[in-house]
Design a protein around this nucleic acid. Structure first.
Lengths: 229, 229
DNA sequence: GTTACGCTATGACGGGCGTCCTAGCCAGAG
DNA sequence: CTCTGGCTAGGACGCCCGTCATAGCGTAAC
């Protein structure tokens, strides 16, 4: 909760990631990031001489690494558990912030660079998305999924989750994410359970029972992005 | 092509939608919208006394209606054709703008209102998403999909497309959207082709042959959002 | 011709922005 | 003790923002 003193560079990056996930990149000002991190404005340009571009890029990478680490842990229990952990993570971000925060990687991907800036942030975002997909696809292949199936399905998983998180924010409800979750789960299950074919189609909803917030992520909504609202 | 004189209110709304789809809501300034629409700044507050909030809400509704109209036309040929048309439409927006424009509805959903503004824009965005889903679900039910299957699948379709469009912008490639497209197509096909069950699973990719830009939308990339780059 | 009104045109206001710069502080090395 | 260098502190520059007020224009009604 209160680490002794994170070198205040970390706090700046984490705060920037949090603010970007709420308001988008262009609406996130360095002044407010510094204030939120209890850091003088000058320190920001000391740590990030590249200015806002560099800070945004590091914030995206920070989030990407944090999610990848959690994902890696849960993927050791199989692709389905990894998927459930990922879903629980974003669900926790939404409910833990009253639907005010989302995915900073998506937020950055959606705003074209102002004028001058080279799309460095975009490249980082693309790399983060690609990394998540690759982790997922590798895990599915490891558990018997066809090579030609794993990668596109991993893309679908990430895209559907990202889109659903945004839709959840619009309608202030986790319904889109829950609906997407059920279908993604049965798709992944069908892709890895039966290496060749299925006796029943793996398209319908898995069961009338809803699967609440399992996933075993022991998710702390404040650890991915510091949100003090 | 060159309408006589769209009452310049239309141009403001369309320009705002286009700009929001590129830079996000907070980075879209009323001054630039007015300039882009060749309209004095004062006219903006004449037409939209509610200020930026009202303009943004109308821009989102405008985009939502434009897409819904196209979708309605293609859905008369069945859900699969509607899906293909929707995919072709967003694909055209991406390629027609060099991956600089996306979906303004998603863009608006992702930025929390500044401080004062009530989430009017968010409500409109939620309604637009809901409308698209409802159109799609109704078409699938009409073509034999289970009631409990059509609605979640419609949500998955919209979420996956929206997320994929954002990912395409990040990596400046239509690969995510193409991958998502193939899988969504077989999912929808499986949901409507066989009212009860399938002889082959409807999860894998439909066929090794890629389905290029059919969809018959006769898509003009400049008609949804005026993009003059 | 005159009047009324929708729209144009312009400028001002207060404020926040990204960026940079220059002192100042203060621990640790010599 | 002196000195060095990473970090703090705060101010300044020029620019753009959302909003509003007010005067001018044109056309259509009477």
């Amino acid at each position: 909760m209160d680490e002794p003193v994170p070198p205040s560079r970390q706090r700046i990056v984490a705060g920037a990631a949090d603010m970007i996930s709420r308001r988008g990149l262009n609406a996130t000002s360095i002044r407010e990031v510094a204030k939120h991190a209890q850091t003088p404005l000058g320190s920001t340009y000391h740590y990030f001489p590249g200015g806002k571009q560099q800070l945004a890029a590091e914030a995206v990478r920070f989030t990407g690494d944090a999610v990848a680490t959690r994902l890696r842990g849960m993927l050791r229990a199989g692709p389905v558990d990894g998927l459930l952990a990922l879903l629980a993570l974003w669900r926790g971000v939404l409910t833990g912030t009253n639907f005010q925060a989302g995915c900073p990687v998506l937020a950055v991907s959606i705003e074209e660079p102002a004028d001058d800036a080279s799309p460095e942030v975009l490249a980082v975002a693309a790399a983060v998305f690609g990394g998540w997909e690759a982790q997922f696809a590798a895990s599915m292949r490891l558990h018997g999924a066809d090579s030609g199936t794993a990668e596109p399905l991993a893309t679908l998983v990430i895209a559907a989750i990202e889109g659903a998180v945004a839709m959840c924010r619009a309608q202030r409800s986790t319904q889109p994410l829950d609906r997407v979750a059920a279908q993604l789960e049965s798709l992944v299950r069908a892709a890895v359970d039966n290496p060749a074919r299925a006796t029943d189609q793996g398209v319908d909803q898995p069961a009338p029972s809803d699967h609440r917030d399992r996933g075993g992520a022991t998710h702390d909504p404040g650890s991915l992005l510091s949100h003090r609202d």
